[in-house]
């Protein structure tokens, strides 16, 4: 059996071509603290230079045996670039991801600078992609928040949620503006030459929105985004998703990713065997909390038995993982995933 490189495996995977075994990767952050520590820097620093961002991504995937690298790690890059500021938590002893301290208070007050892609840390992220692509060993993944989740980073989420009922036209216009930002940024990453994309509309699950509202408020924007992309693209939503699986599947994504709240076996039945399904272990409960790697093996096997094409965490890996648990994820995926998955054949 021909053995593929990590990069080849992931690229073929998204092209739905036969591969040697199940790729092990994620479209969300997979940086591990062991890699950051080995680099001799603090977690707060890795978000601040292209070298540290790319370096920590590469080292993490080397250490863990993953097939891809993904940057950035925090959700604040665009919000910072459009003027919401940044809190890095440099003095915290804990692992904390950067956040935005300021949000606009009304939809009308939001003023997006035309050159936001050149502001704040956006050039750092670009340069990190260049480093990762040049390295060439791993598939390179870029992600962006979906319009609704991005909106929640720059204005009060409550304003948006209530506005969706009370002031629908203004919210609709605002989400169109957010969609433009998402498309501009993700198309730019596409032009840099990344191998796959992930749109994370994680704030739109049915914990918050009704399927009816998802259909009218979220779906049209996501459909516009996916129709603008040429690179394989994933739609990821965490939280409650069972009720919106068919709607998610209509958005035009090449793959759908779910977290542990999704009833995955049922989801596979609903979407059939044409679309790639990714998921759905609890990243904290599995990679950090489990004391015995054999328990991780059970979780990974269940994901595969439920019908995923690759076993993804439901969110960013919590960086303070147990490396043995990560290795169990990788080993089980590769061994138990030697058989074909619902969508992807084997060489």
């Amino acid at each position: 059996m021909a053995e593929l490189t990590s990069k080849e495996r992931v690229i073929k995977f998204f092209k739905k071509e036969p591969i040697d075994t199940m790729p092990v990767f994620s479209g969300m952050g997979t940086v591990v603290i062991q890699a950051v520590n080995e680099m001799g820097v603090k977690f707060a620093q890795v978000h601040t230079t292209a070298e540290l961002l790319a370096g920590s991504a590469l080292k993490s995937s080397e250490m863990c045996g993953l097939d891809a690298v993904v940057v950035p790690y925090d959700m604040a890059t665009v919000a910072q670039a459009v003027g919401c500021g940044l809190t890095l938590y440099e003095n915290s002893a804990d692992i904390l991801y950067p956040t935005v301290p300021n949000k606009w208070e009304t939809l009308e007050a939001v003023d997006i600078p035309a050159d936001f892609m050149k502001r704040a840390r956006m050039p750092i992220v670009d340069e990190a992609f260049n480093i990762l692509i040049k390295d060439g060993r791993f598939a390179v993944g870029a992600w962006q928040l979906g319009p609704f989740t991005l909106a929640g980073q720059i204005i009060e989420l409550g304003l948006l949620l209530k506005g969706a009922k009370k002031n629908k036209e203004a919210v609709e216009a605002f989400l169109t503006k957010m969609t433009d930002i998402v498309i501009e940024s993700i198309k730019h990453y596409e032009s840099l030459g990344v191998d796959f994309l992930n749109i994370r509309e994680m704030g739109s699950g049915t914990d918050l929105l009704s399927p009816k509202m998802w259909n009218s408020l979220i779906q049209p924007h996501l459909t516009r985004i996916f129709s603008a992309l040429k690179t394989p693209a994933v739609l990821h939503i965490c939280g409650g998703t069972d009720m919106i699986v068919p709607l998610m599947n209509q958005c035009g994504a090449d793959a759908l990713s779910f977290d542990q709240k999704n009833t995955l076996a049922k989801t596979r039945e609903v979407v059939g065997n044409d679309v790639i399904v990714l998921g759905n272990f609890d990243p904290y409960g599995t990679m950090v909390q489990m004391e015995n790697p054999a328990d991780v093996e059970t979780v990974v096997k269940k994901c595969i038995d439920d019908g995923v094409d690759a076993v993804w965490p439901g969110c960013d890996l919590w960086p303070d993982v147990k490396l043995d648990n990560i290795k169990a994820w990788v080993k089980t995926s590769k061994e138990y995933g030697k058989k074909r998955s619902p969508v992807i054949g084997r060489i």
Partner: peptide, 14 residues
């Protein structure tokens, strides 16, 4: 019972 979601709940709270 999934008749209301968070937007409705927030408005009820108001």
């Amino acid at each position: 019972t999934h008749e209301y979601f968070v937007p409705e709940v927030l408005m009820c709270a108001d």
